[in-house]
Each structure stands twice: as C-alpha cells, then as structure tokens.
C-alpha cells in the first residue's frame, strides 16, 4: 500500500477525531449550563456544598480552564464520573462495550454473509422468480424499523411461544460456567441478533445485487467467457470479487454506526450493552456518561470509516498502487 494513501487517510481520521473531541465539550456545555442546579433541584444546598459538588464534577473554574482540564483528562481516557452511579464513565463503558461488540459483531457477520449471498443469487438470476422473491424480501427487511421488527420477534418468539428469553444476557440467578454459560448467552442473544441481522441484511443484499449487475455489464466478463471459463468460474473469480468492493466498504462503515445504532434493539431486549447504557443515561440525564458515550460512538464511526478506506485500498489495486 502506498504510504501516501495510508497516511492521508489516518491523518484525516485523526483530524476528525480531534474536532469531535472539542465539539463534544461545547455541545454538552450548551445543553446544560449548571448541572448541579438541575440535578439537585428542590434540595437546599449551602453555597459551600454547591462548590464542593461543582469541584467534584469538574464544573469549577472558567470555561477555558474547564476545557483544558477536559482535554487533559480525555487524553488520559478519563471521561469523568457518572452522575447516576458515581463510577468512572470509562470503566462503565468498557464493561458494557463487550456485550454490544458481541451482539453487533455476530449480527454484522450474519447480515453480511446472507446479504451478499442473496445479492449474488438475485443478480445472477435477474428477472427470475428467485430475483423477484429475494429482492422483495430484502426491500421489506430494509424498510422495516429495527425497533418494530424487534418487538414483533419479542412478542412472537419470546412472549407467545416462549422459545427464547425476553431479555438480558444470562438467566437471572444462573451460575452456569463454561459451555453452559456460553450456550445460555447465545440463547439470549438469538433474538436481538436476529433483529439486527434482518435489519441490515436487506441493505447489503440490495447493494450487492446492483453492484454485481453493474459488474456483469463489464467487458472483462465477456473476455473471461471467451477464454473458455465456465460460467460459475467467471462469476466467482471475476464478477463477485469486483462487485464486493463497495459492499465490503459499506459493511465496515456500518459496523461503526451499528455500535451506536443498537440503542433501540438493546433497550427492547434489555441487552446490557452500550445502547442500553445510553438509554438509561438519557433518562437522567447523566451528562458525563452521555458525553463519554457520544465520544466513543463518534470514535467508532471514525475508526471504521478509516478501516473501510484502508480495506478498499488493500482490496483495490487501483487505489493501492501508483
């Protein structure tokens, strides 16, 4: 990979991140001018108590001093303390990140695999029943709101049929370990993961289909056929890899968004990840927590955009080689 392309993308990502960090500070000051006042509304605090609380939450001093302190702390990954739990925001986020990463990772994997396969079938058999069926299915799942789909699945498979638990990550009070624990978690993850998989699969299928249809018009496919290759070889070796380029990029970019986009699904299924954490913090509002989450979500989007760019450069020699 040429150093120019690589370093340009990394620098751009870092610049965006720096902007988001600064923006984040001002955004949350605009929202709330005096958190202590609103947080302890109705309670009689002495001026001394007030000052103490302000210091505790890092709200003392001028805006300029606060900003400098905020930058220093953020650089040390210190995101302040949660108003709600009084725990460090960073450790709470770290703890809750794993369930989200597992859920989103599994869903992304399955939605990518099935979306791409559906797109290939639909494009390769275009204008057949298979195409109409799969394209219709993709459009339907693509246009369904994920919270609605999640509630539908929850009501039918957890509440009515009772095949799956209604929420959480493990059975309450369960002390299972090892494989049994893993199985229990998988059982809990099934419905939220299915919801997210269905919600994202349609988009991947539609993009893959149209990308492959474009590729199928290319002259190099005619040449590949003229060389005497079988149709499946032409498809698998020449058409699909080229058509995958935009889809792979889309998946990488989406991964960054899904991390934060799982709020609705995690809330519905009480999945103890970052989405549920956000939902709970919003009720407060727990400003330091929200500020920390906002930063993490932005950083995830920026990071996976970078991954998408680098992946593209890696997969497409036209970008990689001068």
């Amino acid at each position: 990979m040429s150093f120019g392309y690589f370093s340009r993308k990394v620098l751009a990502a870092l610049a965006t991140l720096a902007f988001v960090v600064c923006f984040n500070f001002f955004l949350f000051r605009v929202v709330e001018s005096d958190p202590v006042a609103s947080l302890f509304r109705g309670r009689n605090l002495t001026p001394a108590q007030r000052l103490e609380l302000r210091q505790e939450f890092g709200l003392d001093g001028s805006k300029g001093e606060q900003f400098v302190r905020y930058l220093q702390q953020t650089a040390q990954l210190n995101l302040g303390r949660s108003y709600r739990s009084n725990q460090p925001v960073s450790s709470e986020i770290r703890e809750r990140a794993w369930p989200t990463i597992a859920l989103v990772g599994v869903s992304t994997l399955f939605s990518a695999i099935f979306g791409i396969l559906i797109g290939i079938v639909a494009a390769w058999r275009r204008r057949t029943k298979a195409d109409y069926g799969w394209t219709g299915f993709s459009m339907a799942t693509y246009s369904m709101p994920d919270f609605w789909l999640g509630m539908l699945l929850l009501i039918s498979f957890a509440v009515a049929l009772g095949w799956f638990p209604v929420g959480g990550i493990t059975d309450t009070g369960s002390d299972a370990t090892g494989v049994a624990k893993l199985f229990d978690q998988a059982h809990h993850m099934f419905l939220p993961a299915l919801t997210l998989t269905l919600a994202y699969l349609g988009e991947y299928a539609l993009v893959m289909r149209s990308s492959l249809l474009d590729t199928m018009r290319e002259d190099y496919l005619t040449l590949a056929r003229a060389k005497g290759l079988r149709d499946v070889v032409v498809r698998n070796r020449h058409a699909v890899p080229n058509a995958l380029l935009p889809v792979v990029t889309l998946i990488a970019i989406n991964f960054g968004f899904v991390l934060s986009g799982a709020i609705a699904v995690e809330t519905i299924f009480s999945w103890p990840g970052l989405g549920l954490l956000t939902y709970d913090a919003l009720k407060g509002p727990d400003l330091p927590m929200l500020q920390g989450l906002f930063l993490v979500f932005s950083a995830a989007v920026i990071f996976f955009n970078l991954v998408a760019d680098l992946l593209y450069g890696f997969l497409d020699p036209r970008v990689r080689t001068p």
Binding site: Y220, L223, A226, K227, G228, R318
Partner: peptide, 23 residues
C-alpha cells in the same frame, strides 16, 4: 468452451475495459 481461445480468440475492443482491473 474447449473451442473458445484454442481455436479462435479475440483481441477485444477497448483494452482498458477488456482487462479485469483488480487482477
């Protein structure tokens, strides 16, 4: 398929698009 390229082959028009760009 056996006849293609061994008996008859084509130098396709438009050399830029006739070659697979990523191979």
């Amino acid at each position: 398929r056996a006849v293609r390229w061994t008996e008859m082959s084509i130098v396709f028009q438009g050399a830029l698009h006739a070659l697979n760009p990523v191979q």
